[in-house]
């Protein structure tokens, strides 16, 4: 086996994993705390990419664009909560699903109107565009490494926020006992809107990070959202820790499956058969893994103890 390729693919898998975590953690947070299913979360990820792209061209700096995009996305998330999510909290999940499905159509079409049908590439500044040489024949793109670092930082930041801060304490308390928190004199509505904004920002960051690699495009949100669902189902809906483990697992399985499954299959079947079946199987691998995990643990790997 080619170990250089393996290392690079492991890094790619990690990169996909942390991006998935950024999207999935917001979903799981919003579901775990607000009991709200947000299909439009992927559209916010897409908006993150597009807004960052526009700002990059306007400011001529990717870095400043990212910094400026963060509050914009947070505000969008906040507004989304007030106008669409809040009236639906008392409804059942079916209404959440339909309402946010409508929101996807609206957001995607608005994005289409503003940015046009073609994708927008984001140029990276030179200091991010290079390669880091690890050994003689191993070079890793700086930016991919940065994505992993930023993703991990965000992950630990979120775990810290939820577990060790006053806001996190309120969030956890609000999830398990809404009336109690409200009785403490805390404005639970604002608290919920803040959670929504945090979730949106995390998804937005993921969009901003991936855009320089893949470009900002219309379908990107709808492609990632289902994988993010798989992540939170496998991790246990509502569990940030579960989302983290599942995101890395799924990122690695998906990436490694696509690059090495045919080699693996060639060990026990003909080359032709392996090359035909490997793409089909690897395209299904994460779903098959989800099915396997759910048949043993119907509530995912780390079902949250909160009710």
């Amino acid at each position: 086996m080619d170990y250089t390729l393996l290392l690079i693919q492991v890094l790619n898998g990690l990169q996909l994993g942390v991006l998935l975590f950024l999207v999935a953690s917001g979903l799981t947070l919003i579901f775990g705390i607000l009991d709200f299913v947000n299909l439009a979360h992927g559209s916010i990820y897409m908006l993150g990419a597009f807004i960052c792209a526009s700002l990059t061209y306007a400011l001529d700096s990717y870095l400043f664009a990212v910094i400026l995009s963060l509050p914009v996305i947070a505000i969008i998330g906040y507004a989304f909560e007030i106008f669409l999510a809040r009236p639906l909290y008392a409804r059942d999940h079916l209404d959440h699903v339909l309402g946010t499905f409508g929101a996807i159509l609206v957001i995607d079409t608005i994005a289409h109107l503003i940015w046009g049908p073609a994708g927008i590439a984001i140029p990276l500044p030179n200091y991010l565009d290079g390669q880091i040489t690890i050994s003689e024949n191993i070079e890793i793109p700086t930016f991919r490494l940065l994505i992993i670092v930023v993703g991990l930082t965000a992950a630990f930041g979120l775990l810290w926020l939820v577990n060790f801060t006053k806001l996190g304490m309120l969030i956890r308390a609000g999830a398990s006992n809404r009336t109690m928190v409200a009785a403490l004199g805390i404005d639970i509505r604002t608290l919920f809107a803040i959670v929504f904004a945090i979730g949106a920002t995390l998804a937005g960051i993921a969009g901003m990070l991936i855009a320089p690699i893949t470009e900002a495009s219309l379908g990107m949100g709808n492609n990632i959202i289902i994988t993010a669902f798989v992540v939170i189902i496998v991790g246990g809906i509502g569990s940030v820790k579960g989302a983290f483990v599942a995101a890395l697992l799924i990122g690695l399985i998906d990436t490694l499956g696509r690059s090495f499954l045919d080699d693996l299959f060639k060990l026990f079947m003909s080359t032709g058969a392996a090359e035909n079946s490997a793409p089909a199987i690897s395209s299904m691998s994460i779903y098959l893994m989800m099915a396997l995990i759910l048949s043993f643990k119907p509530k995912g790997l780390f079902p949250p103890r909160l009710g």
């Binding site: 339909l98 409508g102 996807i104 159509l105 609206v106 608005i110 109107l113």
Partner: peptide
């Protein structure tokens, strides 16, 4: 766009 708004 109108379809999504209608759905909402």
């Amino acid at each position: 766009l109108p379809f999504g708004l209608l759905l909402i």
